[in-house]
Design a protein around this nucleic acid. Sequence first.
DNA 1: CGGCAGCGCAC
DNA 2: GTGCGC
DNA 3: GCCG
Length: 638
Amino acid sequence: MEIFHHLASSLLDPSENKARFVDHCHALHSRVLKLPSRSGVNNSHRFVALALCVCSHLCGASIDSAFCVLQTMAPSDPSAEGACSREQLAQVCKTEWLPAVNELNLKKFCNDGEGAKLRRLFHDYYIAFVPSILFSHSRAALLLDLVRENGGEGKVFAASEMGFREASTLIREKTSPFCNAIVCADVNLICKYSTSYQLDARPPKWLRDSLRDCRIKHPSLYVKKYEEKNCSPAKRKPHEANISCIHLPSPTKRPRSTVAKVLTAEMVKPAKDHNPSFRSPREKEGAEADEFRGQASSPLSSRRGERDSKLEQPSAKPLSWACEIRTSFSGGDFPMNEKICELLGVVQESCLMKKDQFRATGYQRAIARIRALRQDITTVDDVAVLTSGKGIGTKLERKIIEIVKTGRLLQAENVLENAEGTAVRQLCNVWGIGPVKALHLIAQGIKSVTQLRDAVRHDSQILDRNQKIGLRHYEDLLLRIPRRHVAELEKFVRMVVKSVDQSLDITVAGSYLRGKKDCGDVDILICGSSEQLRFGFVKVVKEMRKKGVLTDDLTIGQGKYFGIFRFPGRPHARVDLFAVPHEEYPFALLTYTGSAIFNRYVNSKVDPNCESVDGNCNRHPIFGDTNTCLLVAIYEGR
DNA sequence: CGGCAGCGCAC
DNA sequence: GTGCGC
DNA sequence: GCCG
C-alpha cells in the first residue's frame, strides 16, 4: 500500500483527498486478494499491476512508463520485486485492473484536476534519464541551439527504457509546451555505447553506479563532483537543479527490470575485467562509433569559442564520454597518424573510382579509427593497438606497418602515378559524373575537364543535362562554402519562405548543422504542415528562381529540389531543398544532418520488419519497434 | 562466401 | 535496370 | 577492405 501513500502525498494536497484516494486504492487492493491465482502471477504482482494502473491512469501514460515512474517513486517497495516480467505485468494491468481503475476515475482526487504534479514527475523523469549516447550531448545541444536560434523554446530530453509510442504520446500530450525535441535510445544500446565511448582516463562513474544499482542515473547528478574537481563555476539551468529532488533508489533491495538484468549481465563483467576481453564491447561497432564520434564532437570544439555560454550548459557537462572530447588531431598532433590516414585515403579514393565502394568503406573505417586514436603510431608495436580491435585486418595491418617502417605506401604511389586514376578522379569531381561515366569518357580519349569541355562543344550528347550543369560550374562547385555564406543563404531562404507562407520555416541541416567550418553544399529543410508544403514548397523554389538566386535546377522531385544557387559576386554552390512535414521533421533532420556514416550506421541497426508506428515517419528508417527502438526524435512544432 | 543502408531521380 | 547523389 |  505504500505506493499509494507515495502517490497520494506527491499528488494530492488537501488531506481529505489523500485519505479518500487511499481508501479507494484499498478497496481495489482488497479485490486483489480475492482473485484466483494464475500461473506466474501472484497477488503481489497484481498489487504492482494495480499501482501501475493507477499511476498510468493518473498520468495518461502507458503502463511501461508508469513502471519506470513507479520504480523511481517507490524503489524499495518489496512488492515491486517480483519475478514477473514487465510484459506479464502489463497483461495483468490490461485484463484485471484498467477498467476498474478507469471507472473509479481517480483523477478527481487530484487537486489540479490534471495530475500535473505527477506529470511533472514524468517530466523530471525524462530529464533524469541518461541522454542518448548515440545522439551525443554535443549533437543534441546543437539541435537545441538551432531551435533557439529560430526563436523557439525547447529542451532536449532523453529517455530510455520506454518505447516510441510511450515517449511520443507522453511528450506530445504532456510536455508539448516545453518540448521541441526528444531523443531517446534503448538502454542496452546506451550502455553498450557508453562503454564504446568510455575513456580510459575517466570511466563514466554514472554508468558504473547505474549498473551497480540497476538504475540509470542522470549524469547531472555527477556534475557537482565534476565541477568541484575542475574548480569551474556552476552554470546550471533552472530545471536541472530540480533533478536532485528525484529519488534515486538506494542500492539495496532493488526491483530489477528485465532490461536491468540484461544490462548487468552484459556490462558489469567487461567493466570489471582488465584483461584483453575488456575490449570486446568497445570493438563491437567500434569503427562506426569512432567515425561518428569524430564528426559529432567537432562542432562542440569549434563552437565552444564562439558561444561559450550555450555549450557550458549542464546538458553538455560531464565530460565522461569520448564523444565530448575534441578530436581535432589534424593539427600535427600525431604526424604519423596523419600520414597513414593520408596514404590510406589515397587508396580509398582509388577504390571508389574503381566502383569498389565496399572496399573503400573498409579503408574509410580504418582511417576513422586511426584519426580517433589518442596516440601516435610510430612503431610496429603501436600497430597492435589498432589490430586488436575490429575494422582493421591483416591486409590493412600490413599496409600500416609498411607506412610506419618506410614512411611510404607503394600502392598509394602507384595510384598517384597512374594517369588513368588521376583522370578518373578529376572527371568524377564533376557533379553527376561517377566512376562508370568517367571510364566511358576516358575510353573516348577524354582525360581531363578541359578536354571534356572541348568534347562537349563538338558533341553535346556525351553528357546528360545534369552533368553539363556540373561541368559548367566545375570550378565553383569544387570550392567549399564558408559558414557565413551559408548563414546568408539561410536568412535569404527564410525570408522567401516566410513571404510565401508565414507558417513555414526552414532549418539548415547537413554539415552546417554539424558545425563544420565550411560546407560542400547546403541542405535546407523547409518544414510545415503537409498541406501547406504542397503548394508552399513549389512556390518557394519558384520565388527563389525568380529572384535569380537559383541559377540551375538539377533535380526537382516530390518534396525535394537539388539545384545551384549563387549570390551576386559569389561562386555558384549546390543547394538542396527538402519539404518536410512536421511529423517527419525529426527523422528528416537526423538523416539530412548526417553524417553519411552516421546514417549508414543507424540504418544498419534498424529492424527492417519493424511495425509502422506512424505511416509517414516510417519511410525514415530511424526507428525500430518499441522493443528495438533505437533512436527516436520527436519534434513538437511551434 | 555473401553482406556491407536504402531511396528516388535521370536516362 | 544502371548510374548517381543523397 | 572487414566481418560473420
